[in-house]
Write a protein that binds this DNA or RNA. Structure first.
Lengths: 417, 417
DNA sequence: TTAGGGGAATCCTTGACTGAGATCCGCCAG
DNA sequence: CTGGCGGATCTCAGTCAAGGATTCCCCTAA
């Protein structure tokens, strides 16, 4: 353990990089504004001269990434021409590969869903066949959307962790037999002809929030992903934290309940063993809240019964409410650990199971997190639910492409090796 | 909780910024190399053309931040001229304000300690007098070092958290009465005439590692700070994570022992209640390992007895060893939580109490962390002890200045508001 | 003496900045 | 109703500064 792997050192930058970066900065400002911005406003916001804004605007107009959308003249003088994002300027395809269902979306530049489909994930141990099926579904979806293929910037894949980011493979995914270290990214690139990006589902969800989540996707935040498992996506200063192997956000073994049930790690009360939906459903069945007592096999069964549990809680069943409320306390503890460690001032909740939980969680969690906050005296911590719905995984996957292509990441400035 | 605070949007960049950034990139490459680099090597490393390197080298030579140090010719052709950091090119002053002792250092450009002193922190409730005393001590230290005042880039302060980074104040510091929200940074700037930066001690320690820690300070890592409390500093891709209010790294309430003692947060087995030195010393006293049974008042008493405990463990006292070993397990769990959440591949241990612990911890902790790693299948996690010694707080404080002035932070590229 | 590599001088390209001019609209007088 | 005036917005040329490409000079080993 004494030899330190020497990372690639920090590299320099040059003029073309600078130009491209400023372009993405302006695009980002336009994107984040509600209702567009004029060139003068842009100059003020990004700190560049009006001239430069004009030049870059022209480039963006030429690429039809933005459009001039009307004028706005209040007083005397030439009215400002408003620049807006052109939704049809670019598209991206997203796939969320989940043990239960595989979701597909085509997204436009503003992050709106143009086309959408879901298929049950085939549980064959034959990844090649599944990959071919995915490629075919993408083909069908793009066809149906009527989008010009030239306008499709790429394909994003969201997969359950852990993943091997360097090789574009999932590693020992639970409930996906035969998928260990299959080179999914390259296989799909070959099959579709698109450039492919791959990330964990929680990271994708966080990216979806930055791109399609409105004001709650700006700055720094932790995205609590409520899915089959519970994970988090991390965004610091508008940049997603991926970690060395793309596996940031693993919080399954944070201990949230010293009196909780034992976990496979040998301890007690981990997130993974005490507050994921599967555990809550099992608790509800043991308590006799859910009539159906069949085995909990597969993600879709869990999802269904979990929805029943939440409905019971919303309907006033006190035992069900107790289970949900307790889970809120535990999840809030996990969120607090991450929020305290990174000192963020916003926690965003989302994920496929969030819809059922949101009402009760939004009543309980804000106060719990505020109480647990180490920096609570200095700044409050906002707790919000995401605006991106159930398909956040697939939407996030598509947003990976948009983010990679158009977001003003500092990395974009640096020369490549 | 619905109103989202709109953060300052991402800003553009321009030519002068680019030039300055490239300068810092080159300086950083020279700094990180062992034994200097030639211009050609630099060109290859940072990706800029040889003559750009030449131009920037000239600027660095003019500012005497680097020096030409000999030639290196192996084969035919003109031998390479080696560029090295000039230790005397710049200095920085660092102060570590700790409840027990206040440490002062003057650092040169390579991070070597030029001058050093310690005084007991006066426990008066009169911050103004203490600030005046600190300023006087700095004056004395600079005088004694014989350093040209023009070469002093600034003053760094490391303070125990939580801090209010915006206002440069400590917030409700434990054991420091009367210091709540005193505007320490501005007061010291007025008193010394230096530009002052302030950060938490754990953040400062992480910065010290990036600047003076050798290869283990590159890339991404978590710095576990073993002090009166236990905290962590976070560095991702060579940039320190500070958080919205400068309070990142608060891990005191991560639960590491479900069977542990109760904590003031209402739960059990937090880091703060189960493995900080004060708790271990109390355990040792209860077990009769330490003969002296006096009260545990003040940081220096704890430090002294903790050293005795570690000595006993090193000497083979099995009860003492059990206490240290158990703490290693617990601290490893906390480190694992952070490492898993951020997916870093290195954990660096350090801090004032690290010296006593290092031998046993380095035997136990690497395996423990590897076992707890969620990404353990994908990459190993290195565990190393810092090269920066007991004064890491003050050295880190001085490094804050060097880092702010000379590190290739992406932030440097962006235009200011 | 020759070969080969390092470093500097020169010119080119490119992107942002500066200042003058064109454009557009509301206002107001005739 | 019409045309000139003023003010704000936007664009056109010129300048500046930084990195890139080419060329040349210098140095050392063989």
């Amino acid at each position: 353990m004494t030899e330190i792997r020497q990372p690639t050192p920090r590299r320099g930058t040059n003029l073309p990089r600078m130009g491209d970066f400023n372009l993405t900065v302006i695009l980002d400002a336009v994107r984040r504004s509600s209702g567009g911005l004029s060139r003068v406003e842009l100059a003020q916001i990004v700190g560049l001269s009006p001239q430069t804004i004009s030049n870059i605007s022209r480039r963006l107009l030429d690429q039809s990434l933005i459009v001039e959308a009307g004028k706005e003249g209040s007083g005397p003088g030439k009215p400002r021409t408003i620049l807006r994002l052109n939704p049809a300027g670019m598209y991206a395809v997203g796939v969320h590969l989940d043990p239960a269902v595989t979701t597909f979306v085509v997204l436009d530049l503003v992050g709106a869903v143009v086309q959408h489909s879901r298929v049950k994930t085939p549980d064959s141990g034959n990844p090649e066949a599944v990959i071919a099926a995915i490629a075919a579904e993408i083909e069908k979806l793009v066809e149906a959307s009527g989008v010009d293929r030239e306008k499709i910037a790429g394909l994003g894949i969201a997969a359950p962790g852990p993943i091997d980011h360097d090789n574009g493979a999932v590693v020992e995914p639970p409930l996906l037999d035969g998928w260990d270290r299959v080179l999914l990214r390259d296989a799909l690139a070959d099959a579709t002809g698109l450039s492919v990006l791959m990330d964990k589902d929680v990271t994708s969800a966080a990216v979806a929030e930055t791109w399609a989540g409105g004001p709650s996707g700006a700055g720094s935040f932790v995205f609590m992903y409520m899915g089959t498992g519970i994970g988090c996506g991390i965004v610091l200063n508008d940049e997603v934290v991926r970690g060395t192997s793309g596996n940031a956000g693993e919080i399954g073994h944070i201990i949230v309940d010293p009196d909780g049930p034992p976990c496979d790690c040998g301890l007690r009360g981990c997130v993974k063993s005490s507050c994921i939906p599967q555990v809550l459903v099992a608790e509800a069945q043991a308590a006799g809240i859910l009539s159906d007592e069949g085995p909990l096999t597969g993600g879709s069964v869990v999802q269904e019964r979990f929805a029943q549990l939440c409905e019971a809680a919303d309907a006033g069943n006190s035992a069900a409410m107790a289970i949900i409320d307790k889970s809120a306390v535990l999840v809030a503890r996990a969120a607090s650990v991450v929020a305290n460690t990174l000192d963020v001032d916003r926690v965003v909740f989302g994920g496929p199971f969030w819809g059922s939980l949101s009402r009760r969680y939004l009543e309980l969690v804000p106060d719990l997190i505020q109480q647990n906050s180490d920096a609570g005296n200095i700044h409050a911590i906002e707790v919000v639910g995401t605006g991106v719905g159930e398909d956040v995984g697939a939407i996030g996957a598509a947003c990976l492409v948009l983010e990679h292509t158009l977001a003003p990441r500092a990395q974009r400035l640096l020369l490549e090796g």
